[in-house]
Design a protein around this nucleic acid. Structure first.
Lengths: 196, 196
DNA sequence: CGTCTATTTGAATGTACTCAAAAGCGGTGG
DNA sequence: CCACCGCTTTTGAGTACATTCAAATAGACG
């Protein structure tokens, strides 16, 4: 019931029997967040990886001048953590906030290792997850380096049409690496150009 | 002998017995490339992932206006492929050229799947490899979006000091997403600032 | 209704690019 | 070994893209 979405996410890559499924679920904890609350704050240790069951999260980095850069968004059926901190067991440099009321299932690093020992198939699952994440980030690097802001914006709208509608322009701008003022100008230019 | 460097790379994450090692090696093929030759050209299918035993490779994307963006460099002990194309079995959009005489060991996608079936430990190995690649790319996205070109350049020198010395400024510029002319200006500014 | 934040607009500025020309450097053939 | 060729690097002028700052407007939420 409660874990249906998560289990179908996993079933896309590996098959679990009843016992494995139950063991996996026993390692999870649930957490709910009201809008504007934090799943993780910069400076804290990041001991878990989270699966979004419902809601909307944003991971961002805030630099010394208070400029925010959005690292990723996560809607339902997405996995999210500060991977750098999760892997290296360091303190987080990013924050993850709920931009809508959200519920997640969390797996700690320790439980993940237990899971790998008891159900090695999960190595495959997370390999595929990491592989897809790598491909996504690499294509984002390429776009960021080779496309001007306007094309990055239209590419973003095209790639994530449903996500874009749930974001403010400020949030989109911080993901594209531009100022909200400039995104406003871009949108004006686009709407001018599109008048037929 | 021949595979020592590769086997020690793998041994950093998983332990193999003699039989597993031999099976793994039996799945590999070798390839050598003279400087300026291509491991992979845009438009070709990318069926293998390569481990650099010796030499220096550069993966890049060339856009419609002939601008090149360097996706990654790979020196000895690094793995490289066009991961997008390797995973999705599509035609490559990137090219990989040897910028020094290079020798690699290659694993095809089919052999990789055989390896996963016969020696599931390799799922773990590649999970860790993908995970590290993801972390690296994500931090590159963050730097690209939040730092000006001069700071990206100094960060690059600091992170990869030995690699930087083997590259032309044009190659570094294409990795940083700036023009060679502008990198030249940046270097002049830095050397002025550093006069004591 | 009032307050707070997001968005728009514009002027001034800064960062990075384009184009062009000159200088430097490395490799190759005679 | 030297001379030449092609490519890289430097330099500069002009331009384009994007930011900063400020102020006005619009929206969202209690």
């Amino acid at each position: 019931m409660k874990h249906d979405l998560l289990l179908s996410n996993i079933a896309r890559h590996i098959s679990l029997d009843k016992e494995e499924t139950e063991y996996f679920i026993s390692l999870l904890s649930s957490r709910t967040l009201k809008k504007k609350n934090y799943l993780l704050e910069a400076g804290q240790p990041c001991t878990t990886i989270s699966y979004v069951n419902e809601g909307f999260l944003r991971a961002y980095y805030r630099d010394a001048d208070d400029n925010e850069t959005t690292i990723m968004f996560a809607v339902a059926d997405w996995w999210i953590t500060d991977m750098t901190c999760f892997v290296n067991q360091t303190l987080s440099i990013t924050s993850i906030e709920a931009i809508e009321d959200t519920s997640v299932f969390q797996l700690t690093k320790e439980n993940m290792e237990r899971l790998f020992i008891k159900v090695p198939k999960f190595e495959r699952f997370f390999r595929i997850l990491m592989q897809n994440s790598y491909v996504r980030e690499q294509s984002r690097v390429l776009q960021t380096l080779s496309l001007p802001a306007e094309e990055r914006y239209t590419a973003f709208l095209k790639k994530y049409p449903s996500i874009a509608g749930r974001l403010t322009q400020k949030q989109i701008a911080s993901y594209l690496g531009i100022t909200p003022e400039f995104l406003s100008v871009i949108r004006k230019n686009i709407s001018k150009g599109n008048v037929s």
